[in-house]
Amino acid sequence: MSILVNKETRVVVQGITGSAGSFHAQQCLEYGTQVVAGVTPGKGGTSWKPGSGQGSQELPIFNTVSEAVRQTGADASLIFVPPPFAADAILEAADANLRIIVCITEGIPVLDRARVRQKLGVRGQGSGVRKEELSPRPSPLNPVLIGPNCPGIITPGQCKMGIMPGYIHKPGPVGVISRSGTLTYEAVWQLTQKGLGQSTVVGIGGDPIVGSSFVDLLELFEKDSVTQAVLMIGEIGGSSEEAAAEFFKKHMSKPLFSFIAGKTAPPGRRMGHAGAIVEGGAGTHEGKIKALKQNGVRVIENLSDIGATISSQLSHFHPTVTVN
Protein backbone atom coordinates (compact mmCIF):
# COMPACT_ATOMS: atom_id res chain seq x y z
CA MET A 1 0.00 0.00 0.00
CA SER A 2 0.90 3.65 -0.30
CA ILE A 3 -1.08 6.78 -0.92
CA LEU A 4 -2.20 8.36 -4.21
CA VAL A 5 0.09 6.60 -6.70
CA ASN A 6 1.47 3.07 -7.17
CA LYS A 7 2.74 0.79 -9.93
CA GLU A 8 -0.72 0.71 -11.55
CA THR A 9 -0.87 4.49 -12.01
CA ARG A 10 -0.91 5.48 -15.69
CA VAL A 11 0.51 8.91 -16.28
CA VAL A 12 0.01 11.41 -19.07
CA VAL A 13 2.53 14.29 -19.22
CA GLN A 14 1.08 17.68 -20.21
CA GLY A 15 3.80 19.79 -21.80
CA ILE A 16 5.98 16.79 -22.67
CA THR A 17 7.72 18.50 -25.58
CA GLY A 18 9.13 21.34 -23.46
CA SER A 19 12.63 20.93 -22.06
CA ALA A 20 11.58 20.28 -18.44
CA GLY A 21 8.66 18.08 -19.48
CA SER A 22 10.82 16.02 -21.81
CA PHE A 23 13.70 15.56 -19.36
CA HIS A 24 11.46 14.54 -16.49
CA ALA A 25 9.17 12.28 -18.55
CA GLN A 26 12.32 10.35 -19.35
CA GLN A 27 13.47 10.31 -15.73
CA CYS A 28 10.04 9.04 -14.62
CA LEU A 29 10.11 6.30 -17.26
CA GLU A 30 13.58 5.24 -16.17
CA TYR A 31 12.33 5.03 -12.59
CA GLY A 32 9.66 2.60 -13.75
CA THR A 33 6.62 4.88 -13.78
CA GLN A 34 4.00 3.95 -16.35
CA VAL A 35 4.14 7.12 -18.43
CA VAL A 36 1.70 6.32 -21.22
CA ALA A 37 1.24 9.50 -23.25
CA GLY A 38 2.14 13.11 -23.75
CA VAL A 39 -0.05 16.11 -24.52
CA THR A 40 1.06 19.15 -26.48
CA PRO A 41 -1.67 21.06 -28.34
CA GLY A 42 -0.82 21.11 -32.06
CA LYS A 43 1.59 18.18 -31.92
CA GLY A 44 -1.03 15.44 -31.71
CA GLY A 45 -0.31 12.43 -33.90
CA THR A 46 3.44 12.72 -33.54
CA SER A 47 5.46 10.80 -31.01
CA TRP A 48 7.90 11.66 -28.26
CA LYS A 49 11.31 10.03 -27.97
CA PRO A 50 13.46 10.11 -24.86
CA GLY A 51 16.35 12.55 -25.26
CA SER A 52 19.70 10.91 -24.73
CA GLY A 53 19.04 7.52 -26.27
CA GLN A 54 18.58 5.70 -22.97
CA GLY A 55 15.70 3.29 -23.35
CA SER A 56 13.83 2.94 -26.57
CA GLN A 57 10.31 3.71 -25.39
CA GLU A 58 8.41 6.12 -27.63
CA LEU A 59 5.20 7.75 -26.44
CA PRO A 60 2.22 8.95 -28.47
CA ILE A 61 1.48 12.69 -28.28
CA PHE A 62 -2.11 13.91 -28.25
CA ASN A 63 -3.63 17.35 -28.78
CA THR A 64 -5.97 17.10 -25.81
CA VAL A 65 -5.92 15.35 -22.45
CA SER A 66 -9.33 13.73 -22.99
CA GLU A 67 -8.09 12.12 -26.20
CA ALA A 68 -4.97 10.85 -24.40
CA VAL A 69 -7.17 9.35 -21.69
CA ARG A 70 -9.46 7.68 -24.23
CA GLN A 71 -6.59 6.15 -26.16
CA THR A 72 -4.29 5.10 -23.31
CA GLY A 73 -6.42 4.74 -20.17
CA ALA A 74 -4.32 7.29 -18.28
CA ASP A 75 -5.64 8.11 -14.80
CA ALA A 76 -3.14 10.73 -13.68
CA SER A 77 -1.52 13.81 -15.17
CA LEU A 78 1.86 15.42 -14.58
CA ILE A 79 1.86 19.07 -15.72
CA PHE A 80 4.90 21.02 -16.98
CA VAL A 81 2.93 23.70 -18.86
CA PRO A 82 4.31 27.30 -18.57
CA PRO A 83 2.66 29.60 -15.97
CA PRO A 84 0.31 31.59 -18.26
CA PHE A 85 -1.33 28.36 -19.45
CA ALA A 86 -0.96 26.12 -16.39
CA ALA A 87 -4.31 26.88 -14.74
CA ASP A 88 -6.08 25.93 -17.95
CA ALA A 89 -4.00 22.74 -18.13
CA ILE A 90 -5.17 21.77 -14.63
CA LEU A 91 -8.80 22.36 -15.59
CA GLU A 92 -8.31 20.30 -18.76
CA ALA A 93 -6.94 17.40 -16.71
CA ALA A 94 -9.86 17.65 -14.26
CA ASP A 95 -12.32 17.80 -17.15
CA ALA A 96 -10.83 14.57 -18.50
CA ASN A 97 -11.72 12.89 -15.18
CA LEU A 98 -8.16 12.23 -14.11
CA ARG A 99 -7.86 10.96 -10.56
CA ILE A 100 -4.51 12.55 -9.69
CA ILE A 101 -3.22 15.84 -11.09
CA VAL A 102 0.31 16.93 -10.22
CA CYS A 103 1.26 20.44 -11.32
CA ILE A 104 5.00 21.16 -11.22
CA THR A 105 4.79 24.64 -12.79
CA GLU A 106 6.18 27.47 -10.69
CA GLY A 107 4.92 31.06 -10.94
CA ILE A 108 1.19 30.68 -11.63
CA PRO A 109 -0.74 33.90 -10.83
CA VAL A 110 -2.49 33.45 -7.51
CA LEU A 111 -5.88 34.49 -8.90
CA ASP A 112 -5.64 31.75 -11.52
CA ARG A 113 -5.18 29.33 -8.66
CA ALA A 114 -8.16 30.77 -6.79
CA ARG A 115 -10.30 30.30 -9.91
CA VAL A 116 -9.09 26.72 -10.38
CA ARG A 117 -9.77 25.91 -6.75
CA GLN A 118 -13.26 27.31 -7.04
CA LYS A 119 -14.02 25.28 -10.17
CA LEU A 120 -12.58 22.01 -8.88
CA GLY A 121 -14.44 22.53 -5.61
CA VAL A 122 -17.76 22.92 -7.37
CA ARG A 123 -17.11 19.88 -9.56
CA GLY A 124 -16.15 17.78 -6.58
CA GLN A 125 -19.42 18.28 -4.72
CA GLY A 126 -21.42 15.63 -6.51
CA SER A 127 -22.75 17.99 -9.15
CA GLY A 128 -23.25 15.02 -11.44
CA VAL A 129 -20.66 16.26 -13.91
CA ARG A 130 -18.20 13.56 -12.89
CA LYS A 131 -18.59 9.94 -13.82
CA GLU A 132 -17.74 8.42 -10.47
CA GLU A 133 -17.90 4.89 -11.81
CA LEU A 134 -14.91 5.44 -14.12
CA SER A 135 -12.45 5.21 -11.29
CA PRO A 136 -12.98 5.28 -7.56
CA ARG A 137 -11.55 8.45 -6.11
CA PRO A 138 -9.78 8.81 -2.81
CA SER A 139 -12.07 10.75 -0.56
CA PRO A 140 -12.31 13.62 0.25
CA LEU A 141 -10.23 15.04 -2.58
CA ASN A 142 -11.94 14.92 -5.88
CA PRO A 143 -9.79 15.00 -8.00
CA VAL A 144 -6.60 15.12 -6.02
CA LEU A 145 -4.58 18.13 -7.16
CA ILE A 146 -1.00 18.29 -5.90
CA GLY A 147 0.81 21.60 -6.32
CA PRO A 148 1.39 23.81 -8.16
CA ASN A 149 5.02 24.81 -7.63
CA CYS A 150 5.86 21.42 -6.17
CA PRO A 151 8.24 18.49 -6.78
CA GLY A 152 5.39 15.98 -7.15
CA ILE A 153 4.67 12.56 -5.63
CA ILE A 154 6.77 9.43 -5.36
CA THR A 155 5.91 6.00 -4.02
CA PRO A 156 9.41 4.53 -3.86
CA GLY A 157 9.98 1.50 -6.03
CA GLN A 158 6.60 1.91 -7.74
CA CYS A 159 5.83 5.29 -9.22
CA LYS A 160 7.68 8.59 -9.52
CA MET A 161 5.39 11.34 -10.69
CA GLY A 162 7.52 14.43 -10.37
CA ILE A 163 10.95 15.95 -10.56
CA MET A 164 12.60 14.51 -7.46
CA PRO A 165 15.80 12.48 -7.93
CA GLY A 166 14.52 8.91 -7.68
CA TYR A 167 17.62 7.24 -6.27
CA ILE A 168 17.49 9.02 -2.90
CA HIS A 169 14.26 7.19 -1.98
CA LYS A 170 13.60 3.66 -0.82
CA PRO A 171 10.40 1.81 0.08
CA GLY A 172 9.53 1.83 3.76
CA PRO A 173 7.28 3.01 6.60
CA VAL A 174 7.65 6.82 6.71
CA GLY A 175 5.17 9.05 4.93
CA VAL A 176 6.63 12.43 4.01
CA ILE A 177 4.75 15.65 3.20
CA SER A 178 6.37 18.97 2.48
CA ARG A 179 5.77 22.49 1.23
CA SER A 180 9.29 22.69 -0.14
CA GLY A 181 11.02 20.87 -2.99
CA THR A 182 14.71 20.54 -2.38
CA LEU A 183 14.27 20.56 1.39
CA THR A 184 12.21 17.39 0.98
CA TYR A 185 15.05 15.70 -0.93
CA GLU A 186 17.40 16.61 1.89
CA ALA A 187 15.10 15.04 4.50
CA VAL A 188 14.35 11.94 2.43
CA TRP A 189 18.06 11.40 1.77
CA GLN A 190 18.75 11.51 5.50
CA LEU A 191 16.01 8.94 6.14
CA THR A 192 17.30 6.63 3.43
CA GLN A 193 20.85 6.86 4.75
CA LYS A 194 19.54 5.78 8.16
CA GLY A 195 17.90 2.80 6.50
CA LEU A 196 14.40 4.22 6.87
CA GLY A 197 12.38 3.99 3.68
CA GLN A 198 9.30 5.98 2.69
CA SER A 199 5.74 4.87 1.95
CA THR A 200 4.93 7.88 -0.21
CA VAL A 201 6.55 11.32 -0.42
CA VAL A 202 4.35 14.24 -1.44
CA GLY A 203 5.48 17.79 -2.10
CA ILE A 204 2.30 19.85 -1.72
CA GLY A 205 3.90 22.98 -3.14
CA GLY A 206 4.99 26.35 -1.91
CA ASP A 207 2.33 28.65 -3.38
CA PRO A 208 -0.15 30.56 -1.19
CA ILE A 209 -2.94 28.39 -2.58
CA VAL A 210 -2.22 24.70 -3.13
CA GLY A 211 -4.43 21.85 -4.28
CA SER A 212 -4.00 19.44 -1.38
CA SER A 213 -3.21 20.57 2.15
CA PHE A 214 -1.19 18.90 4.89
CA VAL A 215 -4.46 17.89 6.54
CA ASP A 216 -5.79 16.21 3.36
CA LEU A 217 -2.67 14.07 3.15
CA LEU A 218 -2.34 13.33 6.87
CA GLU A 219 -5.79 11.82 6.62
CA LEU A 220 -4.64 9.51 3.80
CA PHE A 221 -1.43 8.53 5.62
CA GLU A 222 -3.35 7.74 8.80
CA LYS A 223 -5.48 5.25 6.82
CA ASP A 224 -2.57 3.74 4.88
CA SER A 225 -1.46 0.36 6.23
CA VAL A 226 2.22 0.70 5.24
CA THR A 227 2.77 4.12 6.78
CA GLN A 228 3.86 3.93 10.42
CA ALA A 229 4.96 7.51 10.97
CA VAL A 230 4.73 10.78 9.09
CA LEU A 231 7.28 13.54 8.59
CA MET A 232 5.86 16.97 7.83
CA ILE A 233 8.25 19.60 6.50
CA GLY A 234 6.77 23.06 6.79
CA GLU A 235 7.98 26.59 6.48
CA ILE A 236 7.08 30.03 7.75
CA GLY A 237 3.98 31.76 6.33
CA GLY A 238 0.35 30.67 6.10
CA SER A 239 -1.33 28.47 8.68
CA SER A 240 -1.35 24.97 7.20
CA GLU A 241 1.09 23.61 9.83
CA GLU A 242 -1.13 24.92 12.62
CA ALA A 243 -4.17 23.24 11.02
CA ALA A 244 -2.17 20.01 10.67
CA ALA A 245 -1.20 20.12 14.34
CA GLU A 246 -4.84 20.34 15.37
CA PHE A 247 -5.81 17.55 12.99
CA PHE A 248 -3.04 15.37 14.41
CA LYS A 249 -4.28 15.75 17.95
CA LYS A 250 -7.88 14.96 17.08
CA HIS A 251 -7.57 12.29 14.42
CA MET A 252 -4.17 10.62 14.29
CA SER A 253 -2.73 7.60 16.05
CA LYS A 254 0.57 7.46 14.12
CA PRO A 255 3.50 9.59 15.30
CA LEU A 256 4.01 12.85 13.42
CA PHE A 257 7.45 14.47 13.19
CA SER A 258 7.93 17.99 11.92
CA PHE A 259 10.66 20.37 10.83
CA ILE A 260 9.81 24.01 10.08
CA ALA A 261 12.23 26.02 7.92
CA GLY A 262 12.73 29.74 8.35
CA LYS A 263 13.75 30.19 11.98
CA THR A 264 16.40 32.72 10.97
CA ALA A 265 14.54 34.21 7.99
CA PRO A 266 14.35 37.99 8.15
CA PRO A 267 10.91 39.56 8.55
CA GLY A 268 9.57 40.34 5.10
CA ARG A 269 9.36 43.91 3.98
CA ARG A 270 5.63 44.01 3.97
CA MET A 271 3.32 46.81 3.14
CA GLY A 272 -0.11 47.58 4.48
CA HIS A 273 -2.03 45.73 7.16
CA ALA A 274 -4.33 43.42 5.21
CA GLY A 275 -2.10 40.32 5.34
CA ALA A 276 -1.46 40.62 9.06
CA ILE A 277 -5.16 41.16 9.75
CA VAL A 278 -6.30 38.17 7.71
CA GLU A 279 -3.63 35.78 9.00
CA GLY A 280 -3.82 36.92 12.63
CA GLY A 281 -0.91 35.54 14.66
CA ALA A 282 -0.34 32.52 12.38
CA GLY A 283 2.64 32.10 10.11
CA THR A 284 5.68 32.80 12.31
CA HIS A 285 8.26 30.13 13.08
CA GLU A 286 7.69 30.54 16.78
CA GLY A 287 3.91 30.30 16.45
CA LYS A 288 4.13 27.15 14.35
CA ILE A 289 6.56 25.38 16.70
CA LYS A 290 4.32 26.26 19.63
CA ALA A 291 1.18 24.94 17.90
CA LEU A 292 2.97 21.72 16.92
CA LYS A 293 4.37 21.06 20.39
CA GLN A 294 1.09 21.85 22.13
CA ASN A 295 -0.65 19.24 20.02
CA GLY A 296 1.92 16.52 20.61
CA VAL A 297 3.79 16.69 17.29
CA ARG A 298 7.50 15.78 17.62
CA VAL A 299 9.41 18.84 16.51
CA ILE A 300 12.90 18.49 15.02
CA GLU A 301 14.79 21.77 15.41
CA ASN A 302 17.93 21.07 13.35
CA LEU A 303 17.62 20.19 9.67
CA SER A 304 20.66 17.92 9.86
CA ASP A 305 19.01 15.83 12.63
CA ILE A 306 15.88 14.73 10.75
CA GLY A 307 17.10 11.24 9.80
CA ALA A 308 18.76 10.49 13.13
CA THR A 309 15.81 11.71 15.23
CA ILE A 310 13.17 9.74 13.37
CA SER A 311 15.20 6.56 13.19
CA SER A 312 15.97 6.57 16.92
CA GLN A 313 12.44 7.46 17.99
CA LEU A 314 10.74 5.15 15.54
CA SER A 315 12.76 2.12 16.61
CA HIS A 316 11.83 2.97 20.20
CA PHE A 317 8.09 3.41 19.64
CA HIS A 318 7.73 0.83 16.90
CA PRO A 319 10.12 -2.02 17.65
CA THR A 320 8.92 -3.88 14.53
CA VAL A 321 10.59 -1.39 12.21
CA THR A 322 14.00 -2.55 11.11
CA VAL A 323 16.55 0.17 11.28
CA ASN A 324 19.90 -0.56 9.69
Binding site: S178, R179, S180, G181, T182, L183, T184, E186, G206, I233, E235, I236, F259, A261, G262, K263, T264, A265, N302, L303, S304
Partner: peptide, 17 residues
Protein backbone atom coordinates in the same frame (compact mmCIF):
# COMPACT_ATOMS: atom_id res chain seq x y z
CA UNK B 1 23.71 29.93 -2.90
CA UNK B 2 20.92 27.40 -2.65
CA UNK B 3 18.23 25.95 -4.90
CA UNK B 4 14.71 26.14 -3.54
CA UNK B 5 13.36 28.63 -1.01
CA UNK B 6 12.76 26.02 1.69
CA UNK B 7 16.26 24.55 1.47
CA UNK B 8 17.68 28.08 1.35
CA UNK B 9 15.91 28.87 4.62
CA UNK B 10 17.00 25.53 6.09
CA UNK B 11 20.59 26.24 5.04
CA UNK B 12 20.48 29.66 6.71
CA UNK B 13 19.12 28.01 9.86
CA UNK B 14 21.99 25.49 9.75
CA UNK B 15 24.61 28.24 9.39
CA UNK B 16 23.13 29.95 12.42
CA UNK B 17 23.16 26.69 14.38
Amino acid sequence: LVNGAGLAMGTMDSIKL
